[in-house]
Amino acid sequence: MPKGIAVDKQGRLKERVAMSDTNLLLTITVVVFFILYLYAVFFLQGSFTKPQNFLNILNNNASLIVLSCGMSIVMITGGIDISVGAVTCLVCMTSAVNLERQGGNIFTVILIGLGIGLAFGVVQGFLVAHLGIQPFIISLAGMFFAKGMTTIVSKEPVRVTDEAFLAVKDTRITVPGLGSPNKLGVYIPAYVEVGVVIALLVVVLLFCLLRWTKLGRNFYAVGGNNQSANMLGINVRRTKFLAHVLCSLLAGLGGILYFLHVGSGDVANAAGDEMNAIASSIIGGTLLTGGVGNVVGTFFGVLSLNTIKRIVSSLGFDEAWWSNITVAAMLCLFLVVQSIVLLRKNKK
């Protein structure tokens, strides 16, 4: 038989290695973010021209960045965790009560945050990974539980007056070279809050985890095809368990950052953040089917989401409902674009 017939099945041997799904979606996300932001800078101007505006997106969303990264990890393994918003809220409330009424300090707050996160992660992770219950249902129950517990801890908002805590909360880290003069011509330096530094650190650490560690690669393998992963000798249960623990732990950390930003406990804290986190992850190129995604994309997802919110409100649509509708429209657009891109790619 002559050679050459065999090789030519569906795909000819490609010389150039095609871009992986993860990188393709990441590229789309980053490009979209830059287009959005540049559009705002050149056509809307106003506050967008000031670097501080960009830094404020970070300041306001440090917690969401951390939550979304955790969400992405669970989504990469093919799961989902919708309890993260409620856990954040519970951490805020418990921390506030601890500081105000039980004489806690910044360290007990950190302990509480991570402890609550860990507890949720261990329970949910165990139920999902070892008992094989659908993550959506488990984290739904987790969300209910955290919401209920928050009101049991305190129904009324609790404002924190502890000075040591407020000092940390109000610490502003100046970013050199990005400041701008105000109306009176006084130079105002640009700043970020402590939380932003922690959030960025988390993004970098998680990026390394996903890229270069065995555990990180196992997350992708399990999400890609969990039966195959099992056959390949990966401990699927442990991997899923760890993904959930990591996600809830990050939700706990997100709670601490949220608390550090707002300085109070309130049942309305972080309301709807689970949906924001899911939306950010998706906009950032994480597929809910698992196996594809990247925390850097998620980071840009958070930025894109909040940039568009700001753009819409500065266009004069500042009634509350417009913000939601545009976020939804953005999500819709991204989903459709992603699905078309992936369908096209798979057809080839």
């Binding site: 739904l140 987790g142 209910f144 539980f145 209920g148």
Partner: peptide, 11 residues
């Protein structure tokens, strides 16, 4: 307001 917590446990 606390109902969800109980429901969650039952669920």
């Amino acid at each position: 307001t606390a109902l969800p917590a109980y429901k969650a446990v039952v669920v």
